[in-house]
Design a protein around this nucleic acid. Structure first.
Lengths: 145, 145
DNA sequence: TTTTGTGCAAACGTTTTGCAATTAT
DNA sequence: ATAATTGCAAAACGTTTGCACAAAA
């Protein structure tokens, strides 16, 4: 049982097979997946799975603060991240992949924002957009999925 | 003539009154406005203005790299920013306003990302979500527009 | 048994598109 | 003159919602 399913159970919500599977994907993938990606990944296992169920589950997890919404990656869809620690995401504007980037100073900056802004910080989205090394190398080739 | 209209002209694009007005709003407002906000702001001046024209102009400016898209502020709409220097945006999850936050270390971090990631960085979106001091004070009152 | 979640289809709001009329160059 | 832009209406897109049925507790 992982952090997300634990959180659902602790809140008295039901652990349906669909929810458990969605939580598993969110915790195990480094994909920062969208609702549609999760849906497609689970379809073989749950042939009657509805996209609406994926969205509903993601909204539950998001509103409980168990996952973060990262915004779109140039593909028009919301990406989700189960890693709640403040960190940097790198989005490739060509292949739309999202990867993490380690930068210790982010912690200090979040503290500074909290102290100097007067805001009660609930979350962060620190995203850099650019061409990933792979797409840069591929030059004018088609996007490497 | 401002930076945005200059950019359009330099690219050989036409400076229509609508475009000039949209550029003016983007450069002068601290609003980080959405397409709809710009549309409403210009409607008195251009009664036949179409929302599609606003979207088209924003897409032109964005694809030329003259403005940045900030993502939605919890209101489901894209916010735009004519300030291209790396900086922090603070989004209030209650009133959906977006403000800037000064933090010098952001410059260094962008440099670190560029050097260590191998990405060609095209832009950044550094957004903190939380309750602004005003909404925090207003407690359970309705959102202060 | 009761309450919550699922899945479908329809609805929603934002953004995009096709195209004829208009306008900047 | 001519090529680009506008504005409208319709379409497309991701996401949300209502509701009957199914399933977890």
């Amino acid at each position: 049982m992982n952090r997300l399913t634990e959180g659902l159970k602790a809140a008295g919500l039901r652990l349906t097979p669909q929810r458990v599977a969605i939580c598993k994907i969110l915790e195990e993938s480094k994909d920062h997946p969208t609702a549609l990606m999760i849906y497609h990944q689970l379809l073989p296992q749950f042939p009657t799975l509805s996209l609406a169920t994926v969205y509903k589950t993601l909204n539950v997890l998001k509103s409980m603060g168990l996952v973060h919404a990262l915004g779109d990656a140039g593909d028009g869809a919301e990406h989700f991240d189960a890693d709640l620690t403040p960190h940097i995401n790198l989005v490739c504007t060509k292949c739309h992949r999202v990867v993490d980037f380690d930068e210790a100073r982010i912690q200090e900056i979040q503290r500074a924002v909290e102290q100097r802004s007067g805001y009660v910080i609930q979350g962060a989205r620190i995203v850099y957009y650019g061409l990933c090394p792979q797409c840069r190398a591929n030059g004018s080739l088609k996007e490497s999925a």
